[in-house]
């Protein structure tokens, strides 16, 4: 059909298209990730949870869904879309939205998927897929455990002096972490991903108008975001420092007497403001460094 075409076109060639991923393509990955991870979460909503005592034996999420998109298409946009899909499709539309804790879940999941997706450099490499799946669950659950612990530390006065409290919380979080790693990370993460990622490699990209990824090749479009990633990571870790600092302060003051409220409230405020200033300053520095580096390129 096309072999008889003359090599010369009549019209003047005006462009040959660029190799970088374009904004619409990023938007497609974002929407796709949101829709599919949202769907996966609706399914989990229907499956009854099995809990034995305090231990939850349920599947936390279908890790293979965002991992597949992050590994094949674009880790940043897949990481951005997936947790949003969870919030929108299940929490919001099923009437189960929980305000601030959604935000914390979003940050955790975003970091987890972005890091794991960036680790998978070759979509046909099994060890990398395994590592990716375990990283998603590991990072997300670790961060959420830290946040949970922080809540208890902030919420309970002199928490470390309460008999058995630190141990019991650590035990529950630790057991939960292990179970999630096995169920969500391996059974519903690494094993399905090992099959799905190679199966979709080279099939899903043309549907989105993209070129399939060549193993090992760094993806255009992900590099400029590395700076942002660092910013977010530093932000998140500083946030946890705020909690840690509060805890230390609590210890040094020891027992607080009746006029506790005003003092405590004020100091809390100053500590928060201080931490915020540090975070913003760091973010601004990193941002300008990144912009200069990009301008150099």
């Amino acid at each position: 059909m096309s072999t008889t075409q003359a090599p010369e076109r009549r019209g003047a060639l005006r462009g040959i298209g660029s190799a970088r991923t374009s904004t619409p393509q990023n938007l497609m990955v974002f929407v796709l990730s949101m829709a599919l991870f949202g769907l996966a979460n609706i399914l989990l909503e229907i499956i009854p949870d099995v809990t034995i005592g305090p231990v939850d034996l349920s599947v936390a999420y279908f890790v293979f869904v965002p991992l597949t998109l992050a590994a094949l298409l674009n880790p940043f946009w897949a990481a951005l879309g997936a947790p949003l899909g969870e919030i929108v499709f299940t929490d919001l539309l099923m009437g189960d939205f929980s305000g601030l804790s959604e935000l914390e879940g979003f940050i955790q999941m975003f970091l987890a998927i972005y890091v794991a997706g960036s680790v998978v450099r070759n979509p046909r490499s099994r060890p990398q897929i395994w590592l990716g799946a375990l990283l998603i669950v590991g990072i997300d659950k670790f961060l959420s455990a830290v946040v949970d612990l922080a809540k208890v530390w902030v919420g309970v006065e002199d928490a470390e002096y309460v008999q058995g409290l630190p141990q019991s919380i650590l035990l529950l979080e630790g057991v939960g972490f292990g179970i999630d790693l096995v169920i969500s990370g391996i059974l519903f993460g690494a094993l399905p991903a090992m099959w799905l990622i190679p199966a979709l490699h080279g099939r899903i990209e043309p549907l989105l108008g993209m070129r399939p990824r060549v193993p090992g090749e760094p993806r255009p479009g992900t590099v400029p975001w590395a700076g942002w990633f660092v910013v977010v990571a530093v932000l998140a870790s500083l946030l946890s420092f705020v909690f840690a600092f509060l805890e230390a302060w609590d210890v040094s003051i020891g027992s607080v007497e009746a006029d506790f409220r005003g003092q405590y409230g004020d100091t809390f405020l100053w500590v928060s403001v201080g931490a915020l200033v540090v975070v913003l300053a760091l973010a601004a520095i990193l941002f300008s460094v990144w912009r200069r580096r990009r301008a150099d390129r």
Partner: peptide
């Protein structure tokens, strides 16, 4: 085409007198 689906584009399309390129 060609702003969303970027590929090899040659020639000209005028829509309402405006060159789409």
């Amino acid at each position: 085409v060609p702003h969303y689906w970027s590929g090899e584009f040659a020639g000209e399309v005028r829509v309402g007198g405006v060159d789409t390129w």
